[in-house]
Design a protein around this nucleic acid. Structure first.
Lengths: 259, 259
DNA sequence: TATCATTTGTTCGTATGTATC
DNA sequence: CGATACATACGAACAAATGAT
């Protein structure tokens, strides 16, 4: 039996051909690709094969397909929005979020009670099952149209130590920082950045196109004695937004070897 | 047979049912899902429908499929590696990268000459077409198996102002920082974080599974007068690695409005 | 407003190749 | 080697979205 030696599957060859055509400029960004039936005749393959190739290019994020219209080459440009993850403090101890005024709330923030999960517990240094306040917001940036999901998580214990928080735990982060600072905490923050593909509900809420990752931030506020006080989470589509950090060299490398 | 009564396409309903079964714990992480034919009888649908549902879950990154074996629930845990993006300096002005010693070079670093592109130019504050040194490394973390692509980009002009750099531009970042500091620069860094799906070559180099985004870091070193001196880029799969930042409040919010 | 052609989306069927055990 | 499971490929039909007439 004569085996046909191919670099890969047929649909992969078709995908590679289209990819080359895109990168070579034959198909310009934002332009319409040939229709599926045109691609069938052009490459002499069946519709399932063409669709398989297109699915591969979609998964790569190279093209965008709209029902009833066709496939577009995705414009690969830089994200339009840089989210500055700095925290500034004025002389009178007012905290300022560099990008705090960019966002608008899409709807009323929702407050709820919950318990620590394994993930939130390890970030906050708490056991599982501790009582927490949660506060969820959906934000939007009117300039770019970017949307974001914001969550504040405050342990009961912390909220009770700051009376205004126990009554109204859903305050803006900068206000919470100020309250914590006023009762004597010297604050610093640690932030972890992860990226993953969105869950279906995140995809819907953030209105994300295909093959778009989300940037998932977890910012923990630490007080005196490095005690974790509260957790902020921000999820934003990586197609429109990037993160910006300003780094200065620590003079005294605090090397906390844990093991 | 589990009857399906949900809105949306049939394969979406099947995907939703499997997704629920995974999240509810019926299918534990790392366990084998029912085979395609079993899913066909379980949900009473045809093979293409089952495969379409599985393809959707793959694209979400929820499952991992291996030819000839079956579909596995992906262990969704936290990334095993946290890359600390801090810079520390000892009293005698030696710069230390908190995670610098974690990585091993997979092969010899490759040095080359190139020119500013639009992207690198805007980060370095240079026009297009300026001459640059480039240095590419492929790194690996033996503890977790994570791989990363590292790139250092140094403008000719900067390298010439620091003689050892012109001869050997492919030094480790901490060594470059030290050299720049020794000629009088007071350094700070700005870093932007983006996430996207990998290009085919990145996918191969980083050995990434399906539906895994890459975290793409661009760190610009600034010297006296805030002049950009050099650019570091790091690309790492978001499945195994996350980023860690330590943030302290700036006492004087330096608000540089650019527009 | 309504209809129509075009284009993609969904679903079935069938057959064969290839990896794993 | 054979059994099982996924990968690839073809064909066919109808549904749904889009844009123009």
């Amino acid at each position: 039996m004569t085996e046909i030696q191919r670099p890969g599957a047929l649909y992969q060859q078709v995908a590679a051909a289209i990819r080359e055509a895109i990168l070579s400029g034959e198909f310009a960004p934002d332009s319409l690709l040939p229709s599926e039936s045109q691609l069938m005749t052009r490459y002499g393959v069946s519709r399932p094969t063409v669709r398989n190739a297109i699915a591969a290019l979609r998964a790569e994020g190279l093209i965008d397909v709209r029902h009833g219209k066709g496939s577009f080459v995705r414009a690969g440009g830089q994200p339009a929005l840089t989210i500055e993850r700095r925290v500034s403090r004025t002389i009178d101890d007012q905290f300022v979020m560099p990008d705090g005024d960019v966002w608008e709330e899409v709807e009323e923030p929702s407050t709820y009670r919950t318990q620590t999960t394994k993930a939130t517990g390890s970030l906050l240094g708490l056991d599982e099952g501790e009582a927490l306040f949660g506060c969820d917001r959906v934000l939007t940036d009117s300039a770019t149209g970017a949307r974001a999901m914001h969550r504040t998580v405050i342990p009961f214990e912390v909220a009770e130590s700051v009376p205004p928080l126990a009554d109204e735990p859903c305050k803006p982060p900068a206000a919470v920082y100020r309250l914590l600072s006023q009762i004597g905490h010297k604050l610093w923050w640690s932030e972890t950045v992860r990226a993953r593909l969105p869950l279906p509900d995140e995809r819907a809420t953030l209105r994300l196109p295909d093959a778009t990752p989300v940037l998932h931030l977890a910012r923990v506020t630490h007080g005196t004695d490095d005690r974790p006080l509260l957790l902020e989470e921000l999820r934003v589509g990586a197609d429109r937004a990037e993160l910006g950090y300003r780094i200065t060299a620590d003079k005294q490398p605090a090397r906390r070897t844990r093991t």
